[in-house]
Simulated scan of single mutants.
Amino acid sequence: MSLLTAAICCIGFGTTLFIESNGFSVSTLNTRPDTFGNYLTSSFAIVFNLSLLSAGCCLILAMIAIFFTFPDMLSRYIAIAGATVGLSILLMGIFPINFIDWHRKISTLYLLSSFVLHVLCVPDFFKHNSTMSKTVVSLSAIGIVSTVSLMLQLDWKLLDFPPCDHMDNSFCTVSLSMWVLTHINILWCITLSLRMRTHIKQQQSVIMQSHWANL
């Protein structure tokens, strides 16, 4: 399900970006990702928002599987945080930037839950029989940096970010941090699913060996 989440996000984002930006360019990084879900300005907003809705559902299902597969509390906290990220992604698909008040609240939930998720992955890496690989925890470290960057730039009274001024042709740090977090979360889903697959195979191998030993 994590792989499906990443695939849906990549297809939805990629299609919308390619059409709306007339191909991929560096200037795209100065455009906030959530603006592509604006029904008033984006002709492919429906594709973008449906991809968010579908990806959110898949991530929630993946986190439910983790919750019931790994009984330790840290894994379950990660599953809850991940499900919250999935729920916020789903809700952003339902309430895009056109619904500005709801969108601000939901995007803030996405930011905070992403921060909690990536923070929890770090101690999980050091526990015995961890589900986190070095790649996953490295992505989480980058995710922590990008979420902290966004939280420092967020206007907590409005729950929104200040507009970017590109008069000096510089990068917009808000948009850049959003793009980094978006791609980190997609890569996190991919690497975690691959790690989970390996982990489950190892568990099955141990169970089979124990079964044959008891015969």
Score class of each variant (00 low, 15 high):
N22Y: 14
H103L: 05
T41M: 10
L74D: 01
V47G: 02
N22V: 04
F48Y: 15
G23R: 05
L50P: 04
L90M: 14
N49Q: 09
R76L: 02
Y39Q: 07
P71K: 13
I60N: 04
V85D: 11
S51C: 11
I60D: 10
S43Q: 11
F48K: 00
F67V: 00
L87M: 07
F68I: 09
G56A: 06
A55E: 01
T84P: 03
V85S: 11
S75F: 11
M63W: 13
L29W: 14
L87D: 03
L50E: 13
N22T: 07
S43M: 06
M73Q: 14
L53V: 06
P96Q: 04
L90T: 05
L29R: 11
T31D: 08
F36L: 03
P96R: 03
S25G: 06
T35P: 15
I78M: 08
S43P: 12
N98P: 10
L61S: 07
L53E: 12
G23C: 00
S54K: 10
I94T: 09
S27F: 12
R104S: 15
N38V: 05
F68P: 00
A79R: 13
R104P: 05
T84A: 10
T84S: 12
L29H: 12
G86Q: 06
L74G: 01
G23D: 00
Y39G: 00
I60E: 07
I46A: 07
N38Q: 06
I60T: 07
I60S: 05
R76T: 02
L87N: 02
S43G: 10
F24E: 07
I80S: 08
Y39E: 04
R76G: 02
S43C: 02
S27E: 11
R104H: 12
A45H: 14
G82V: 07
F70I: 03
I94V: 10
S54Q: 09
A55W: 10
G93Q: 10
G93L: 11
T41V: 11
A79N: 09
T69V: 00
L87K: 02
M73L: 05
F70V: 02
L50I: 12
M92A: 01
C57P: 00
G23L: 03
V85H: 10
F44L: 14
D72E: 13
L90A: 09
N22W: 12
W102Q: 09
L87S: 04
C58A: 15
N38D: 15
L52H: 08
T28V: 13
I60G: 04
K105M: 14
S51Q: 06
F44P: 00
M73I: 01
F68L: 05
A81K: 08
C58K: 03
W102A: 09
A83G: 06
V26D: 00
V26A: 05
I66E: 02
G23W: 12
S88G: 05
G86T: 02
C57Q: 04
M63R: 10
W102E: 14
I97L: 09
I64S: 01
V47A: 10
T69W: 14
M92L: 08
S25I: 09
I100Y: 15
M92R: 02
T84R: 10
S51L: 12
I78Q: 07
